[in-house]
Design a protein around this nucleic acid. Structure first.
Lengths: 348, 348
DNA sequence: GCGTCCGTTGTAAGGGCTTACATCGCTGCT
DNA sequence: AGCAGCGATGTAAGCCCTTACAACGGACGC
């Protein structure tokens, strides 16, 4: 394989000059640069990124660790992250932990090839995250609570859950069931809390237990079916995500209930499908590409050492009203504002 | 940052021993290995992948170049590729070219960090692919015709397009319009050819022009609307992908036509939505994760030098009958067989 | 008791690049 | 004419690993 030495010989210059041409250094005379580029082409020179990274003491690469890739959530995150990373001159590694036996091992290995890591949701345990921090690896946590000094990026849940719930209550839906599992993630927990807060503020009886369901269409259908069969069935279902809501749509159809007349339904995420269901699903949209982009930018700040303390960035979500809540209206968006909280109280 | 030297000092051994422990070489005495591991932990040693890659003359990484990430197609491919690559001990880089100014540059840069590249569909021009080959970079082409000696992975189009068309004709739909743009990709062209072949075999008048439409919902809606408004509107629309079909659903709704009674509609891809539309969309499923997995495996064969000649692997697709074609039935699958063609006639 | 062999560890030579510093040849000024 | 200064190029050290080969010491066989 040709190296800079091959090129240098071929062009009759030193390897330093070849390197300079390759890096685009301005201090190479024009004719020389031309000759070197011609030689590169001729010998089929492909730079060795490993050697460069070694010499530069930088990988110029970041890693993204995510659980799986179904649904629009991670696609959007990856897209946003990749674009932002490319703009910053960083390459992107990805690794999915789904159904892998030793995710920690996988992630640690990745850690040897990157300048920093973005770790999403339920991939590796907190202890593994701490271990990574001990190796002084800059880390960004996505949809997950802060661990140690790593930065976290979250999206707003509580406020919009509360608004969405109030919206349902104001539609006249008297009893609303929360379908999902608050324990399964901090996001789910916050939605549950917002759901309860709305009841409290409007002086309704505060529900004290959710209708437990895992985050999947089948599970949602099952859970919704059961609750909708009860003698005093709820007037509305606040589903913890769109997939559960989709299951709820099916359950309603199975039971001959029409949406939103017999039962109103809301979701969370605004998957592509939400708009296309009939009636359109009222839900809350997450700024998925922004999450990825913010992660890349924040991570690079860490890598470049300009930031040191842990922060939590909360990106706004958008309540997206369609018809499944009882509204006639089309796609009304209701964003929250962007919040950034820094843990370090000494920060200016 | 601690290196093997730091660890070696700390554990009172030589760097060779540290390296051996890290690589899991069996020829290290047990107590020594334990001591070294403890030291690694204590000093917070993180191996330097670049240095390793340089010494080993291998990156143990492959790159995936794709246009964008919308829809389930690329998610599936990435997932399959990542899983297969991880099983082979390879890390995965991804780069999206969508709306990037100099995709060639991006891809060439990536080429310096990997042992091989998987290049999907419409990302970089054939000339750029050839340039990469000149650099002796192993390449796999996805959903794209073979270039030079690179391997290509395709999915079956013609046969299932023909079967699907015959199916529509046998339903009694007399005139069928092909909605899409055959010129836009080899896949689209093959679907168009299969569509025509079915007419020919059943001795129907062979359509000589498609209803041109780009591959998007809005474009499909527009195109379908126009053709469905014509005085002699077709009985069925053979849409080149599911997004176009989705647009066609909307156009039909706009015009008050019911599916499949007034107009039958079929798609291609079997996106998540296809099953959930009503009526369910009859379409053709692509084995997306298998595409990714096959790409990773084929690429590694190339990298390891066990294969040299270019081949084209054609993965089977599955005709998936729902109701939009006129059937009552639920999700019947009709796979084709797997085909592998090798270009080199000297191959055994 | 000595030589052999084997298991364990160390020494040192790369692997391909970047870049600080040295060198060289001119230009242009005094 | 001589020299400072500058632009262009070269020299060589260093980035952190892997691994061929050497060295060492103890067990074992004769």
């Amino acid at each position: 394989m040709p190296t800079i030495y091959t090129v240098a010989d071929h062009a009759g210059v030193s390897i330093a000059t070849v390197s300079r041409v390759d890096r685009g250094s301005p201090s190479v005379a024009d004719p020389t640069a031309k000759r070197v580029r011609a030689s590169m082409q001729e010998v089929g020179y492909r730079p060795n990124g490993a050697a460069r990274a070694l010499a530069m003491q930088r990988h110029d690469a970041i890693g993204l660790v995510f659980p799986h890739l179904s649904g629009p959530y991670y696609s959007g995150v990856i897209l946003g992250l990749e674009a932002a990373a490319a703009a910053l001159g960083q390459a992107v590694y990805i690794v999915a932990t789904q159904g892998r036996n030793h995710p920690e091992q996988l992630v640690t290995d990745l850690g040897s090839r990157v300048d920093g890591l973005v770790i999403a949701g339920r991939t590796i345990p907190d202890e593994a995250v701490r271990q990574l921090q001990r190796l002084r690896l800059p880390l960004i946590l996505l949809a997950r609570n802060a661990v140690g000094t790593a930065d976290a990026i979250r999206t707003e849940n509580r406020r919009n859950a509360e608004r969405l719930t109030s919206h349902l209550l104001q539609h006249g839906h008297r009893t609303i069931a929360f379908v999902g599992d608050p324990e399964s993630s901090p996001d789910a927990m916050e939605r549950w809390e917002g759901f309860r807060a709305a009841h409290q503020h409007l002086r309704r009886r505060v529900p004290n237990a959710p209708v437990r369901s895992a985050f999947g269409e089948a599970e949602g259908q099952q859970a919704a079916r059961e609750v909708l069969r009860e003698p005093k069935r709820p007037n509305a279902l606040f589903c913890a995500n769109d997939e559960i809501a989709l299951g709820a749509y099916r359950a309603a159809a199975d039971l001959g209930l029409s949406i939103p007349t017999d039962v109103a339904i809301t979701g969370w995420d605004d998957i592509a499908l939400a708009r296309l269901l009939s009636p359109g699903l009222t839900t809350v949209r997450q700024p998925v590409t922004e999450i990825g982009a913010a992660a890349a930018r924040l991570l690079m700040e860490r890598v470049n050492g300009s930031r040191r303390v842990g922060s939590t960035t909360v990106l706004p979500t958008e309540m997206t009203i369609r018809s499944s809540c009882g509204c006639e209206s089309q796609d009304r968006r209701h964003p929250t504002h962007r919040l950034t909280e820094t843990d370090d109280i000494n920060q200016p």
